[in-house]
């Protein structure tokens, strides 16, 4: 046989195998859709129940994702507020000029008393403050960004220096409440992990039971197919597809529900947000996050189906 004829033979064999594989999957796909169509209400109810079970971890994951994004943004934008001893602007400018020469300070700017008051009045509930006090009680301040390349120890040393420096009454770093936020995030993750795991197990159990009932209902058909020489793979494929569809649908329901709940929360959270960006970060779970929830649901569906079929096949004589 010439090399060309052999190559053609190999190609034809490869094509035939690919066609066979594709045909087996097309058949399994068709079977799975027929099985779901045969019980539309039951299939829909299963997907909804699973979606509700998955929605809670999906929602918590969305909030955690937003907080984590906020944390990393704040990490990159460390901001310190310096309150001067003197409210006189020339003194403040002299202090700012002196500090600007320090290479450890990336940038700094003066925010005068009027701007500080405008920021405060923009917060809900502070609108009547000026009427109440009669004059602006706020001092001008210096907003300083330390260099991002500073090591934590060097940053700590700089802060100590600033606090001891003449002319500065108070130096407030944003790290304090960021540390608190990080601790809350860590606690949240620690609580979320076991809860997520338990709910995932509950999803798996529901899927396992749904598929088991489906398998029992089609036990006669499975027996015939096996007697005709079907491999375990051939028998289990349609059920794996059913698990995949149910799991994906549940994931989609969970992603939609969590997005819906976050949108509902938007109004109430906006009142407490320090700025618009914070709210936006918390309330806009990424598309990637939603896709991850759907993929997680699909993976659970596949696993549940695989487990149900394996247990069923192992019990057959």
């Amino acid at each position: 046989m010439s090399g060309q004829a052999r190559r053609k033979g190999i190609l034809r064999l490869g094509w035939e195998r690919l066609s066979t594989w594709a045909e087996a999957h097309r058949h399994a796909l068709h079977q799975s859709l027929r099985s779901l169509r045969a019980r539309p209400l039951s299939s829909l109810a299963t997907a909804l129940v699973l979606g509700l079970v998955l929605a809670l971890p999906a929602l918590a994951r969305g909030v955690m994702e937003g907080l984590a994004a906020l944390e990393s943004r704040l990490e990159a934008e460390a901001e310190w507020i310096l309150f001067p001893e003197s409210k006189a602007m020339p003194d403040l400018r002299a202090l700012a000029d002196a500090l600007a020469r320090d290479p450890r300070i990336a940038s700094l700017r003066i925010r005068d008393a009027e701007e500080n008051l405008a920021t405060l009045l923009a917060q809900p509930g502070f609108g009547d403050l000026v009427d109440l006090l009669g004059e602006n009680p706020l001092p001008p301040i210096l907003i300083l960004h330390p260099s991002a390349s500073l090591a934590p120890e060097a940053r700590e040393a700089l802060l100590r220096e600033l606090r001891e420096r003449p002319g500065i009454a108070l130096a407030l770093p944003s790290e304090d409440w960021r540390g608190e936020l990080r601790r809350w995030l860590d606690r949240g993750r620690a609580v979320l992990m076991p809860i997520g795991l338990l709910l995932a197990l509950a999803t798996l159990a529901v899927l396992f039971n749904t598929l088991r009932l489906d398998l029992l209902e089609r036990a006669e058909e499975i027996e015939v197919v096996r007697l005709l020489g079907a491999s375990d793979g051939f028998v289990q494929r349609p059920f794996l597809y059913v698990g995949l569809w149910l799991g994906s649908a549940a994931g989609a329901v969970a992603a939609l529900l969590s997005r819906g709940v976050l949108l509902l929360l938007e109004g109430s959270l906006a009142a407490y947000a320090l700025d618009g960006e914070l709210g936006a970060m918390l309330l806009a779970p990424s598309l990637r996050g939603s896709m991850a929830v759907v993929a997680f649901g699909a993976a659970l569906g596949l696993s549940g189906a695989w487990l149900a079929v394996r247990v069923h096949l192992a019990r057959l004589p």
């Binding site: 035939e16 066609s19 066979t20 045909e23 087996a24 058949h27 027929r34 006669e220 058909e221 015939v224 197919v225 007697l227 005709l228 020489g229 079907a230 491999s231 051939f234």
Partner: peptide, 29 residues
């Protein structure tokens, strides 16, 4: 195998029932 109780798949046509062993064997449609 020819079964006494036929054991055909009730939701499939006669043609699909007869095609089944060939599908299992991996023959093209």
């Amino acid at each position: 195998l020819v079964f006494q109780d036929h054991r055909l798949l009730p939701e499939q046509s006669a043609l699909a029932n007869v095609e089944l062993p060939l599908l299992i064997a991996g023959l093209p449609a």
